[in-house]
Design a protein around this nucleic acid. Structure first.
Length: 450
DNA sequence: AGCACA
């Protein structure tokens, strides 16, 4: 740090700018006075008063560079200096090209708060903790977080300025309660101002941003495979870490749900590697393993709360398992490892995806490993289910809210028709194997099958 | 009398 005193803080020949710097202004010079001063030379589009330690400097910005030049030129050769209230003001081109004033950001109350989290561990504060803290004052619509030079910051959007200001008044300068923070975290103080934003743009649910008004917003890839452990609780409460293994529990299991049915249903979203079924709490549960988290997320979001069979039967409830790789000891009717090379065992669903080696087997040759549960199924035989499971009975529409948009689609006439309707799940269903009602888009009215 | 603000 040698004293390099070559400090050309100003030059006598400033490059022109449509922004002029004014000094030696009278005390509390107003914007109106500045506009009056500049008006003869052009249109003053912006001003900034009370600048500098003594508050006696200001900026004025003209619409056009030539207007600023005209003003500078005039007073450069004028015998009368520029004056405000009889006081000489000195003018020069500013070293910036435009005035940036934050008047509208920090001063005006709005529905969005700019929150700066102070503290050594500030960036460890999760978006969910922020959501919890601010939800005490009203419905939090959206939160975005980011890091700037100011530190770790968040924008928190409420529905109105009143709610926002109540949160601001209560929380500004306060610390986040320690019981909401991970242990060993230092104190985190909230500094809150109003933001100029009124509606935040949140493209994805992620560990950085959340839109609580839109639970169907896609989850950002970064939130899925980035940290892997950051659960994206859409309601800000569940922090269930995502996993490539889903835990399915089946409610209202009127009809037997077999390993093969599960395999078919879940294969619509990607290759199912392993399934393990077991009894728990008097019901049946299953673990379904995909090769990756993304596929599991897809399947979970599409299937959660939906029924395998029409009529509200066999409703699926899905959560992420803590498992990442199931240990299948034996292939039987309750557990199976589809990654095993033995096609006779590992390919019980020859044509669901049309991509399994065993699917070359023609109709009638598929080998269901499950003894006794189902007779061998020909390629054109539907799931062994009561007809009620296939006909679109009245009142079952609400079981598939995600597919209501496909109501115009009329169901196939029967088991012999395999065409897929728009909006169906992606299962190629290439072999024509019929499937349970999951994926059937048609619930608009009475179907041909009664 | 000599360049703001986040």
């Amino acid at each position: 740090m040698a004293s390099v005193s070559s400090q050309p803080q100003f030059r006598y020949t400033q490059p022109p700018s449509k922004v002029l710097h004014l000094r030696n202004l009278p005390w509390e010079c107003t914007e109106e006075e500045l506009i009056e001063l500049g008006k003869p030379f052009g249109k003053v589009v912006n001003t900034k008063c009370n600048v500098g330690a003594n508050k006696n400097q200001a900026f004025i910005e003209f619409a056009d560079l030539n207007q600023a030049i005209a003003m500078i030129s005039y007073y450069a050769s004028s015998s009368e200096p520029a004056q405000v209230r009889g006081k000489t003001v000195y003018l020069q081109y500013s070293n910036r090209q435009e005035i940036v004033n934050n008047k509208t950001t920090a001063d005006v109350a709005g529905n969005v708060l700019l929150v700066t989290i102070e503290g050594n561990d500030a960036r460890l504060v999760s978006i969910d903790v922020l959501h919890l803290v601010f939800s005490a004052f009203g419905f939090v619509h959206k939160i975005t977080t980011f890091e700037k030079t100011a530190g770790f910051q968040a924008l928190v959007q409420f529905s109105d300025a009143e709610t926002a200001s109540s949160a601001k008044n209560a929380l500004d300068g306060r610390c986040i309660p320690s019981y909401l923070l991970p242990e060993n975290m230092g104190p985190c103080t909230l500094r809150i101002t109003y933001s100029a934003h009124t509606d935040l743009s949140v493209k994805f649910q992620s560990h950085r941003s959340r839109d609580y008004t839109n639970p169907y917003l896609p989850v950002a890839p970064s939130a899925i495979d980035g940290t892997g452990q950051l659960g994206v609780g859409l309601d800000g409460k569940k922090l269930e870490p995502e996993s490539n293994v889903l835990l399915a529990s089946i409610e209202n299991m009127q009809y037997a749900v077999t390993l093969d049915v599960l395999h078919m249903v879940f294969s619509a979203f990607g290759p199912v590697q392993k399934i393990a079924m077991f009894d728990k709490n008097g019901g049946v549960q299953a673990l379904i393993q995909y090769p990756d988290v993304q596929t599991a997320v897809l399947a979970k979001e599409a299937l959660e709360g939906h029924c395998i069979y029409d009529g509200g039967f066999c409703k699926l409830h899905l959560s992420y398992s803590r498992h990442t790789d199931l240990s299948i000891k034996v292939n039987n009717d309750r557990s199976r490892d589809y990654t095993l090379p033995n096609p006779a065992i590992a390919s019980p669903q020859p044509s669901i995806l049309g991509q399994q080696p065993g699917s070359a087997a023609g109709p009638g040759t598929s080998q269901y490993g499950a003894p006794g549960q189902y007779p061998p199924v020909s390629g054109q035989t539907m799931m062994q289910q009561p007809s009620a499971g296939w006909g679109p009975p009245h009142g079952s529409t609400q079981s598939m809210p995600m597919q209501m948009h496909s109501n115009h689609y009329m169901p196939p006439q029967g088991a012999g028709s395999y065409q897929m309707g728009p909006g169906m799940m992606q299962g190629p269903n290439s072999g024509g194997v019929p499937h349970p009602s999951m994926g059937r888009p048609s619930y608009g009215g009475p179907g041909p099958m009664q």
